[in-house]
């Protein structure tokens, strides 16, 4: 089975990448590579092939979803560079993703949305669920595919639940 994952993370955005020098971006990129590898090893074990579409253009969520037609959304919650431009306040990074989640949920009520953040807190968890997230996760910064691999089982579970709901 093939599952298309639309992966929103500020790591992929030009705004974010323009802010940090290459020698610092390398650590973020290592982590993304570990996530990709963690998901890509899945076909033999779980029978699911994950097709990862990576984007940092959170404002264009509607166009991208319509174009890519993903089975599931994976979204980072903290977008400080975008918040700096939009609200002149980096600390409002979560407001960027939360409003996107609410809007996606409004237009695509059945699309599973998995969100995650590096340093979760109770308020953010509550807000994410209130805005329409399907599951709230902690982002693990460890750049090891083995550690990132369990994410695929979370995604598979969400796909199954969505399929049940559709019946």
């Amino acid at each position: 089975m093939k599952v298309k994952v639309l992966f929103f993370d500020d790591i992929f955005s030009k705004l974010f990448r323009d802010e940090l020098p290459q020698d610092q971006l390398v650590w973020d990129d290592n982590w993304v590579a570990a996530v990709e590898k963690g998901l890509s090893e899945s076909d033999d074990r779980s029978g699911v092939i994950f097709d990862l579409v990576k984007t940092g253009d959170i404002d264009a969520w509607r166009e991208i979803i319509e174009q890519e037609k993903p089975d599931i959304i994976l979204i980072d919650l903290f977008w400080p560079a975008q918040a700096s431009v939009k609200f002149k306040d980096r600390n409002r990074g979560a407001d960027i993703s939360l409003s996107a989640i609410a809007a996606i949920r409004n237009e695509f009520p059945d699309l599973p949305i998995a969100c995650y953040t590096l340093k979760p807190d109770k308020d953010l968890l509550e807000q994410a669920y209130r805005n329409g997230a399907t599951i709230f996760l902690e982002k693990v910064a460890l750049a090891l595919p083995e550690v990132q691999s369990p994410l695929k089982y979370v995604l598979i579970y969400l796909m199954r639940q969505a399929a049940i709901a559709k019946r």
């Binding site: 390398v26 650590w27 306040d89 693990v140 910064a141 090891l144």
Partner: peptide, 20 residues
């Protein structure tokens, strides 16, 4: 705010890489 951002990225990812 800049310092906080640096801690978030790449700080945590750098530490994650060392552990890896």
């Amino acid at each position: 705010s800049d310092i906080s951002l640096k801690i978030h990225n790449p700080g945590f990812y750098c530490l994650g890489a060392i552990k890896g």
